[in-house]
Simulated scan of single mutants.
Amino acid sequence: MQLPTSYHPSNGRRSQPRSYVAAYLRRFLKPKQWDLEYTFWLMLQLCISPKTAYRHTAYHKQTKNQWARDDPAFIVVCCVLLAIASLAYCVVFGDSAWHAVLTVLSVVLVDFLLLGVAIATTCWVITNRFLRKRNLHHHQVEQHVEWLYAFDVHCNSYFPLFLLLYVLQFLLSPALLWRSFLSSALSNALYMIAFGVYHYMNFLGYSALPYLERTEVFLWPIGLMLLVLPFSVLSGFNPSIRALSFYFG
C-alpha cells in the first residue's frame, strides 16, 4: 500500500520526497535506530501534559524541518502494547489459541493501523482542503499538512484511549459486565471519556500547526457524543458488553 505524503489541493501532487517515506519505512527494520527513551517520554507527556508533547513537535519542526516524527518507535511500541493487552483479554474471555491469534491481529492491524490510516487520511484531506489559512502575508510560505503527521496525531490520540479502553476496562470488567443500570452508566461514561480524549487530542495535534484555522471542528464529535450519552444510558446499552461480545461472542 502506497501512503500519501503531503497534499496540494491545487494540483493534487505530493510534495514530500518519496525518499523520506522510504527511509522512514526502512527504519522499522533497524531497532537500534529507534529512540525508545523519547517514545516513552512522549507517551508520559500525552497522559499528563499533552500540550507539552505538541510544543516539542514544534521544536522538531525547527530542527528537522518537518512536523512528522522520523522514528517509527512510537508505532512499534503501541502495537506491542496492544498485542499484550489483547492477549490478556484472550486469556480471560477467549476459548482457543487460534482465536487469540485472530483477535490480536484484528486489534493491531485493523483497529489501530488500518482504521488509523483511514482516519489520518480523512483528517489530512480535510485540513489541507478546508482548514489552511488562505490570506497569507507576502513573506509567508504556503504550507500543507504532512500525511505522516496526520498519522502521528492519530497514534498520539490513540494511546490515552488504549489506556482507558484496553487497560482500565480490563481491570474494571467485573463491574462493567454486570447487566445492571449502574454497570451500563459506568461503561458509557468510560467510553465517552475515552473517545472524548481521543478527539480532544486530535484537536491539540492540528491546532499546534500555525497555518491551520478553525481546528475546533475536531471537537464537534464530543458535542455529538454528549447529546447521545443520556439516551444510551437510559436505554441500558452497555458498550463494554457489546465490544467484548463482538470479539469473543
Results as ranks from 00 to 15, higher is better:
Val21Asp: 13
Ser106Glu: 08
Leu114Cys: 12
Gly249Glu: 11
Ala100Val: 00
Leu105Arg: 01
Leu209His: 07
Leu163Cys: 15
Ser86Trp: 01
Phe246Pro: 00
Ala88Thr: 11
Gln169Leu: 11
Ala97Val: 14
Leu105Asn: 03
Arg179Ile: 12
Ser86Thr: 14
Leu42Val: 02
Ala150Gly: 01
Phe195Asp: 09
Glu146Ile: 04
Cys47Ile: 11
Ser106Leu: 14
Leu36Ala: 09
Pro160Asp: 09
Thr39Arg: 06
Leu219His: 10
Ser6Val: 01
Leu25Gln: 15
Leu171Val: 13
Phe237Arg: 01
Cys78Tyr: 05
Leu3Asp: 04
Thr215Tyr: 07
Tyr7Gln: 01
Ser96Glu: 03
His199Lys: 03
Leu29Ala: 15
Thr52Cys: 02
Ser232Gly: 03
His60Gly: 05
Asn188Ile: 04
Phe130Gln: 04
Leu186Val: 14
Leu182Met: 09
Glu146Asn: 06
Phe130Glu: 05
Leu204Ser: 04
Met201Gly: 00
Val141Ser: 11
Thr215Met: 04
Tyr54Gln: 04
Gln45Val: 04
His138Val: 13
Ala175Ile: 12
Thr215Trp: 10
Thr103Arg: 02
Gln169Cys: 05
Gln16Gly: 03
Phe151Glu: 00
Leu42Ser: 08
His60Glu: 11
Ser10Tyr: 10
Leu109Lys: 03
Val217Ser: 01
Arg214Gln: 12
Val92Arg: 15
Ala58Asp: 13
Ala58Cys: 13
Ile48Ala: 08
Leu227Cys: 15
Ser183His: 08
Val91Asn: 08
Arg55Asn: 07
Met201Cys: 09
Gln66Tyr: 08
Leu44Ala: 12
Ala85Pro: 03
Leu25Lys: 11
Val92Glu: 11
Arg179Ala: 11
Leu226Ile: 10
